[in-house]
Nucleic acid binder design. Structure first.
Lengths: 203, 203
DNA sequence: TGTACATCAGTGAACGCGCGTTCACTGATGTAC
DNA sequence: TGTACATCAGTGAACGCGCGTTCACTGATGTAC
């Protein structure tokens, strides 16, 4: 006759992280519409009001999830760079591959941070990690910038190509099923990018 | 003392279109989260149950809006193509500019169709217009494909670059405010793309 | 042209649901002495 | 080591809200004769 109470979560300082984990999970399972404070709380094993203590409101949670997204994004590129060859082309390929790694291992976060959804741009973590991602790109592109060319031109060229490829890889299924069999690998696009950037060298 | 009733909408066969118009409006004003059958009904001046008659459910409305998005997308490219010069490079530039026209005049639809959200892929209009957009790309790219190269490689190269640029143009503000002053025009990226595609010609 | 009838297009009430947020509260943890 | 107290971290009930969907209905429109 004794009631079985749900196991109460031990207080160990990890709840905030667990709530973000739960949010990422929800995003993956149900898309951006399915994200809610109450569901995250349930997944983390706490009452529905607990998230209010760690995040001021729903935007606080969204922003924390986006910050996590940017953090993983930067880490994916850094990991590839750490294992890259020394040439400029090697390093360029490395950040592109890191970008693709991220998009394919965390499609839900990739879509979320580029969804156009509003985040709290005053949040410190959010600012830190979103700036980090861009600075990795900037530093890797710097040696590739020709004389008399603004560096943004090369950065945005590279960023656009890799970003567009990643996004289209994710949404192509519904657009045009026949493409699934013949979808080119990113390296084949990279070959063309190299031709544009390293016009003098043989390829 | 006579009550002022809301003006009842005249029955003229345009409600379905008006509901889609309202949906696009909502998307622009409140983002993808703000879309709802009830709000569209209110904006179109009918009862909240009226949309149920024209769209089976909320996905029916989403899909109709996405179909509208693809239709406008194709039209933007076609308009530019109709006014383009005859060379392959002119036509390539034309679809790129059409793509950018679309993204800047209908950012809400652009983000919506590429949001990763699920649509009813069995819907005839949806299939028609989403296939149309890709076939315009394919036809324009066909003359640019080198010997021994799969055409998808060039299509995806072009598509990725222009898509990534459009998307990043929309979300850059929150990522890196300093970029706002130095954001390169698409034509400067197109110059590099031309160098990769028309390697033999002077540029 | 008039009339009877069928179908179409939309109504309005009702349903249950999950949500964000607030608030008084409580029990666990940390700290000062 | 013990005790008193403050603060922290989370609880659970309550609130009002907007939502999608269903359903019996009605009034307008179209059609056959």
């Amino acid at each position: 006759m004794t009631e079985v109470l749900p196991p109460r979560r031990k207080r160990d300082g990890t709840l905030k992280t667990s709530l973000i984990d739960a949010g990422v999970d929800l995003l993956r399972k149900r898309g951006a519409d399915g994200l809610s404070l109450r569901e995250c709380a349930a997944m983390a094993g706490v009452s529905h009001a607990a998230p209010g203590y760690h995040f001021k409101n729903i935007m606080g949670l969204s922003t924390a999830i986006a910050a996590r997204g940017y953090k993983l994004f930067s880490e994916a590129m850094t990991t590839r760079l750490d294992n890259a060859g020394p040439s400029d082309a090697d390093r360029l390929a490395a950040i592109c591959h890191g970008y693709m790694d991220y998009a394919s291992s965390h499609p839900e976060l990739f879509l979320f941070i580029f969804s156009g959804q509003k985040f709290n741009e005053a949040d410190d973590e959010f600012r830190l990690y979103s700036a980090k991602a861009y600075s990795i790109l900037r530093e890797t592109c710097a040696p590739l910038v020709p004389e008399n060319t603004p560096c943004e031109e090369i950065e945005v060229l590279v960023w656009s190509l890799v970003h567009g490829y990643a996004q289209l890889s994710m949404t192509r299924k519904k657009d045009n099923p026949q493409l699934n069999r013949t979808w080119p690998a990113f390296d084949s696009l990279l070959k063309h990018l190299n031709r544009a950037l390293f016009a003098a060298s043989a390829n």
